[in-house]
Structure formats: structure tokens, C-alpha cells
Design a protein around this nucleic acid. Structure first.
Lengths: 186, 186
DNA sequence: AATGAATGAAAGTACTTACTTGCATTTGTG
DNA sequence: CACAAATGCAAGTAAGTACTTTCATTCATT
């Protein structure tokens, strides 16, 4: 039921997604939907919580970091793209509902916030060891992930039936990483 | 009426925006709304067309381009930010409705497409005169404006009551431009 | 087999929505 | 003033919405 709701909310948006439609496509009666989740808004919240892409913030990425800037940025970018492309429905819901739903915004905004903080701290660490030069790491981290998000959003919003955008992912990451390496090497 | 509709669509999204609400806030009877625009979807289309930010694609920007990369990129970025921040309602509608409304997507997607083509051609011109090195200009142009859009979208989606994001605009632009100058200088 | 919990079917409630009809009123223009 | 176009009002239509109620049915576990 939650997966179906995720799909329907993602397709039609919160308002246009009817509980009837969700129930039908989930193969259950509409009433069991309400028995489980009480009301539509609650169902929506449960979907957001249950399908929140926690893999993005997992610790195993930290273990793969070597301290070599180029490699690490590439790993972080690839992981970001990979997880986002696996959770396009969740992301699409975020894009559509966040601007007019504060509680949804509070959930979604934690993703970039934690990622940016993590990357900024990583850079701070490298700077302390004089591997990279000093800079506004908060801003750079936000820009780094912002660039990646923008690419995912293009795929999400304008579609990518031909797969051209997805195919460009690797080149984008390489270009992006190269820029940051150039900027940050003393 | 169109301005009111723009505001309401932007606040609530297409589905949740009721014609009654739009009419009331515009200070007209609901029926005159239908007499003018026939139906809700038509009203929405008219809003998109009437408030499309054409200033972004105006020619007067071309006249301000000097051929000096850093200055030109700065001008383009500032103009982009300026126009987008003046049209936040339109942008917000785009963000929310594009993913599930193909006709809306067709209208909105022309903005990045034309901007990217313009910037790519500009770079191609500089490359032909050996001012900058060769590169994937299509991709670089998309990334450049993508980065700027992402910043506008943050303001749009997560709000910017404290004005911190807006305050960071200039620094972001400077950092962004510097990166592209570094990347493109032979 | 028996008990309790989850599920289903059908019907219905109260409300909102986009959109319409008929007629009166205002408004701009010659 | 006179005419025509635009606007307003009141009421209503048909359909869809989230959500509820009653009762019967399945189902797993003891």
C-alpha cells in the first residue's frame, strides 16, 4: 500500500491523488486504507517516512573516503546520483509538494542539510591537514550537491525517455569534480 | 485576474487552487472568470503565457557582453538571478506543475534550453578566437545555469525569510564564475 | 473447532469542485 | 441619451472528494 501510494502521489501530486485510486491500484478496499492510516494526510506522512532514502546518509560512504580529493568527490557524487535515481518517485514528490507543504519541507530539507554538513566537514578536515586551500566550504558543499540535484531534477521534471541525460551523468560528475579539485588545490 | 491566478496557483498548486478562491481574491465574480477563460485549465495556460519571463531571453544582454569571460559570465549570472527572483511565483508554479503536466513542461523547458544554447554559442565563439580552451560547451552551459537555478529553487522551495540565501547570491555567483574561468582558460 | 483480528462489500454522508443558466445591473462609446 | 458589451447575483447541476457506518467474510493462532 505504501509503495502504491508513493507511486500515485508521485504521478499525480498530493491533491490530485485520490484515496480511491490508491486503494484500487494497491488491490485493497478503500476502507482498509483508512483503517491503517486514519486519513490521507497521515498516509502521505507515512509514505514520506517509510520511503525516505536513508542510504544517502549511511556510514559506509565514510569508509570509502581515502583523503584523496578527486577520488572522494567522485565517490560522493556517484553515490548521490545512484541513490537519487533509485528513488525518483520520492524525489518527485519532494519537488512537487515541498513548496506548499511545510511539514513535507521539513522532512526533505534534512537531506541536503546533512549531506552539505558532511561534505563541508570533510573539506575542513583536508584543509586542516593543508591538503586543500581554505575556502567557504559550506557554500562549496551546497553548490556541489546542488549541481547534482539539479541534474536529477531535470530527469525528474522533464523526463528522460531517450536516456540522454542519464548518459551524461558520468561526464557531468567528472567535469564537476575536476572543477572542485582545481578550485581547492592550493 | 491573471496576476491573482498566478499568485494562487503559486501558493496552492494547480489542483488545490479553486476558481472560487481566485475569483474572490481578484475581486470579481466567479462567472466572469469563466467568461474570460472558458475553464480552469485554459486560465492556467493563459497565466503561463502572460507571465512567462521573457526578459531572460532579451537581446539587451547580448549588447552588454564584452568578450571578457569573467565579466560576461558575471553579467549573465546576475541577470539570471535578478529575473528569476522577480518571477518567483512563475518559477514556483513551474517547479510544482512541470513534473506532472507535459504541456506546462513544454512551456517552461524553453527557458533553460534557450539560455543554454545562447551560452554554449557564446563559449563556442570565444573558443574559435582561442580566448578559451575547447570543452563540452553544451554541458558546461547546462551546468552553469543549472547551478543558478538550484539556488533560486532553494529560495523558492524552502523559503528564505531570513534572507540568508539571497545574501549569499553574490558570493555564489563569484565562486561559480571563478570556477568556470579557471576551467576554461587554456 | 473456536476465538479474535484483519479485510471486504455496499451504501451513504457531508462537502467541495468546476461549470452553467437566466436575469438584472453596470459600464464604456457613439 | 441610446445602444451594446461586459459584469454581477442567485441559484443550481453533476460529479468527485475524503471519510463513515453496518454487517458479512476471511484468516491465522490457539
Amino acid at each position: 500500500m505504501i509503495d502504491t501510494a508513493l507511486a500515485v502521489f508521485s504521478e499525480k501530486g498530493y491533491e490530485a491523488a485520490s484515496t480511491r485510486d490508491i486503494a484500487e491500484r494497491a488491490g485493497v478496499n478503500e476502507i482498509t486504507l483508512f483503517r491503517h492510516f486514519k486519513n490521507k494526510e497521515n498516509l502521505f506522512r507515512e509514505v514520506l517516512n517509510a520511503r525516505f532514502p536513508t542510504t544517502l546518509l549511511s556510514d559506509d560512504v565514510n569508509r570509502r573516503l581515502t583523503g584523496r580529493l578527486r577520488e572522494d568527490l567522485t565517490v560522493l557524487a556517484q553515490k548521490y546520483q545512484e541513490v537519487h535515481l533509485e528513488n525518483l518517485d520520492f524525489i518527485r514528490i519532494g519537488i512537487m509538494e515541498v513548496p506548499r507543504n511545510p511539514s513535507c519541507a521539513d522532512v526533505v530539507r534534512t537531506i541536503p542539510e546533512r549531506l552539505e554538513e558532511h561534505l563541508a566537514n570533510y573539506m575542513l578536515d583536508l584543509a586542516a591537514r593543508h591538503v586543500i586551500r581554505d575556502a567557504n566550504f559550506k557554500l562549496l558543499a551546497r553548490m556541489f550537491y546542488g549541481q547534482l540535484f539539479q541534474h536529477v531534477m531535470s530527469i525528474c521534471s522533464f523526463g528522460d525517455d531517450s536516456g540522454t541525460l542519464r548518459a551524461e551523468s558520468d561526464e557531468l560528475i567528472e567535469t564537476l569534480v575536476t572543477m572542485y579539485v582545481q578550485t581547492l588545490t592550493p
